[in-house]
Write a protein that binds this DNA or RNA. Structure first.
Length: 195
DNA sequence: CTTTCGATGATCT
DNA sequence: GATCATCGAAAGG
């Protein structure tokens, strides 16, 4: 079977640029994944970011090289997946908030305990569970197994808006989504093009 | 449809 | 001791 050459994602850029570029990209973990439809950007100069207060044990990955996984536990329950970005040592990352399931969907259903494809990966906690994310993935590079990341094959329509679930810097429009996707964690209020 | 609230534990002050 | 980059169930319109 012929497989198109993988288009690489450039993680060596500011987090909002990377977050936008990841919409429409393919993400797989051990072959389970799909198309990224929702991301959020975080940066050290950002009161809502885990890196705002500087380096700690938890956020060390975001002060390491770009293009690696940053994993954290959310509300003591969920595993959330981020991609580190920016030139190394800048404390920036992109939260992967939702994807459209394409491969390993039955495995996702087993892990999630639900059937509806729209509820498998719509939200960072759900996505982490569906993809089997854990601290075992912390700091791993994204350009080789178990990860597979490929940039979009074609141009996609991207919208932007305020981030979700934060209490600081709430107005910054650093949430990005695939326009009109049915697999978002929540719809975008005013669809502002993020060209 | 909406709002409210408990779960659950690491992290940081 | 307070705060979470969340989710799902329950209760109310």
């Amino acid at each position: 079977m012929t497989r198109r050459a993988r288009r690489l994602v450039d993680f060596d850029a500011p987090s909002d640029v990377v977050a936008r570029a990841l919409i429409g990209a393919t993400l797989q973990v051990d072959g389970v994944g799909g198309v990224i439809v929702e991301t959020e950007a975080y940066d050290q100069a950002d009161a809502a970011s885990h890196t705002f207060m500087g380096p700690t044990a938890r956020n060390a990955a975001m002060f390491g090289p770009s293009g690696h996984a940053y994993v954290y536990r959310s509300y003591g329950i969920h595993w959330c997946l981020n991609f580190t970005c920016r030139p190394s040592g800048h404390g920036a990352g992109v939260l992967i908030r939702a994807l459209e399931p394409r491969t390993g969907v039955d495995e996702m259903r087993l892990r999630r305990g639900v059937d509806d494809p729209r509820l498998l990966c719509a939200g960072p906690g759900r996505l982490g569970q569906a993809l089997g994310i854990s601290m075992a993935h912390y700091g791993l590079p994204l350009d080789r197994p178990p990860f597979f990341v490929a940039a979009p094959d074609a141009a996609v329509e991207v919208v932007a808006g305020p981030r979700i679930g934060i209490s600081k810097a709430v107005e910054a429009p650093w949430r990005f989504g695939l326009k009109d996707s049915r697999f978002l964690s929540r719809p975008f209020g005013r669809a502002v093009d993020a060209a």
